[in-house]
Design a protein around this nucleic acid. Structure first.
Length: 496
RNA sequence: GGGGCGUUAGCUCAGUCGGUAGAGCAGUUGGCUUUUAACCAAUUGGUCGUGCGUUCAAGUCGCACACGCCCCA
């Protein structure tokens, strides 16, 4: 099967014939039409006028857009901001033009000059005096009532989804608005937006498996970043005391409703702050996003309601296990043996060689996280799973770290940064030992990062917020694919 | 990795007990021309995801595979 006739059908063939006829007469894809108005502007200005007022005003307008409905002499155009009905009665045009109007198909893009009026039923409408076909659409649009519902096609052909599904357009508009709001928020707090390498020689900043690539000129193996963390902290060493980066990370892991191989992360670092300060900042940020997006501190998500005006719960890892796994007292957390016994009794899958802290987190991940619905900061993460976080002064087994859980999903991860270069070197060594024993997610030893710390990093707190999951939360989306314009999909089967 | 569900016209979906493939929308032709999921009449359109198998006969039953969705790990 050749590409040329692949998925061709009669409907497309008919439209191609129309295009061929157009080509024979004139420039088929003109670029000279000057659009002067948008549907949303016209509605804002004139929808409140009466039929009589509009007749007196005799407003002319020039708009362009895609034909998404045809009802007798009425045509609905969709442009970047909304929709406008056009009255384009072929009886009132000369024969050649009347034929052209008849040949219009749903999906065609036209430009129209005319005068604004209101129909008998009171709908604001543009009466066409001149029109021009700007782009012939060769492919039929999905069902005009139900849109495109096939989830696979919505993801694979997002452009079609965006044409016909208003809800989908809204999600990505909201996403853009959230991104803009976050930038404004951090700039208002004197943070500086920076860009650090996405291609790294030593992948660092998170325990995750990286994508590997190769630089030909340097003949060097390189990694797509799993996190920008170590570079952002180098900038704090350099004296930029408040920095943030809002961009893509890449992790070579499975796909799910919460995971895409490339995803957007906000990371920010604030010198002379503590992790508690960032929990406060996070509450404030979520509250303000909710109000900016929905006009209220309350957000509905997958059947739950969250009020971001309320302070978030704060609970240590061990306390959360006690609460959600019916553990009576702290004695079980005392030794590695008792924690392993607890994991076994709770039916948690884990490796017998794992450390106490790692087993503890496995219990949390498998048995606790999904149960936490209302916004909750989980704190006091074990040191073994937090190789870049500051050790707690009272309890050397834990770090000054938190994660934010909402609706059973991890939204954010932050901590007071480890700025002791000797402790950091030791932590890297432990990571390398784990990597050597087969853990593909363990970190590399980053000597230059330790060197940077040796120059001195001020006490600092930093945090990462998963933007895709944040957008899911604020758009009530069940799958990460719903908030990614072009989610990763397996290639379609070749029909040959 | 395991389990469940799905894949039928361009789109949205029916398809009974295994017995010649259906509707709405879109399209085409004509009518109507201030409509609102416009309307009226006629009409075109199918490798039923792919491949094997069972059967006189498979969209339908079985197996395998592909892709997707959901759940579990």
């Amino acid at each position: 099967m050749t590409e040329e006739n692949h998925d061709e059908n009669k409907l497309i063939a008919q439209r191609r014939e129309k295009l061929t006829a157009i080509r024979a007469k004139r420039v088929a894809f003109p670029n000279s039409f000057i659009k002067e108005d948008t549907s949303s502007d016209l509605i804002e200005k004139y929808d409140s006028k009466t039929k009589e007022e509009l007749e007196t005003l005799a407003v002319t307008a020039v708009i362009a857009g895609r034909i998404i409905r045809m009802r007798g002499p009425f045509v609905v155009l969709q442009d970047g901001n909304g929709q406008m009905q056009i009255y384009i009665n072929n009886k009132s045009f000369l024969e050649e033009q009347a034929e052209e109007i008849k040949s219009f198909d749903l999906g065609d893009i036209i430009g129209v000059h005319g005068e604004m009026f209101k129909t008998g039923k009171g709908e604001l409408t543009l009466r066409a005096s001149r029109f021009e076909l700007l782009t012939k659409s060769l492919r039929p649009l999905p069902d005009k009532h139900k849109g495109l519902t096939d989830t696979e096609m919505r993801y694979r052909q997002r452009y079609v989804d965006l044409i016909v599904n208003e809800q989908s357009r809204k999600i990505f508009q909201t996403r853009s608005r959230i991104m803009r709001f976050i930038r404004q928020y951090f700039e208002s707090l004197d943070f500086m937006e920076v860009e650090t390498p996405m291609m790294q020689v030593i992948p660092g900043g998170a325990t995750a498996r990286p994508f590997i690539t190769h630089h030909n000129a340097l003949d060097q193996e390189m990694f797509l970043r799993v996190a920008p963390e170590l570079f952002l902290k180098r900038l704090v060493v350099g004296g930029f005391e408040r920095v943030f980066e809002l961009n893509r990370n890449f992790r070579n892991e499975g796909l799910s409703t919460r995971h895409n191989p490339e995803f957007t992360m906000l990371e920010f670092y604030q010198a002379y702050a503590r992790y508690q300060d960032l929990m406060d900042l996070t509450e404030d940020l979520f509250r303000k996003i909710a109000i900016d997006i929905g006009g209220s501190s309350k957000v509905s998500f997958q059947g739950s309601e969250y009020d971001f005006a309320e302070p978030f719960a704060r609970l240590s890892v061990t306390d959360s296990i006690k609460k959600y796994c019916s553990v009576a007292d702290d004695a079980v957390f005392a030794s590695a043996e008792s924690v392993a016994a607890l994991a076994n009794s709770l039916d948690v899958n884990f490796d017998q060689n794992w450390s106490k802290g790692k087993v503890l987190m496995e219990i949390f991940d498998q048995k606790v996280e999904a149960q936490i619905d209302q916004p909750t900061f989980i704190t006091e993460y074990p040191i073994e799973v937090s190789p870049l976080a500051r050790r707690n002064e009272e309890n050397p087994e834990i770090t000054d770290r938190f994660e934010l859980i909402i609706g059973g999903r991890e939204l954010a991860n932050g901590f007071s940064e480890l700025n002791d270069p000797e402790d950091q070197a030791e932590r890297f060594k432990e990571q390398v030992a784990q990597k050597d024993s087969g853990d593909s997610e363990a970190m590399h030893f980053d000597h230059d990062y330790v060197t940077a710390l040796e120059y001195g990093m001020p006490p600092t707190a930093g945090e990462g917020i998963g933007i895709d999951r944040l957008v899911m939360l604020f758009t009530d989306s069940a799958s990460i694919k719903d908030v990614l314009l072009f989610p990763h999909m397996r290639p379609q089967q070749d029909p040959t």
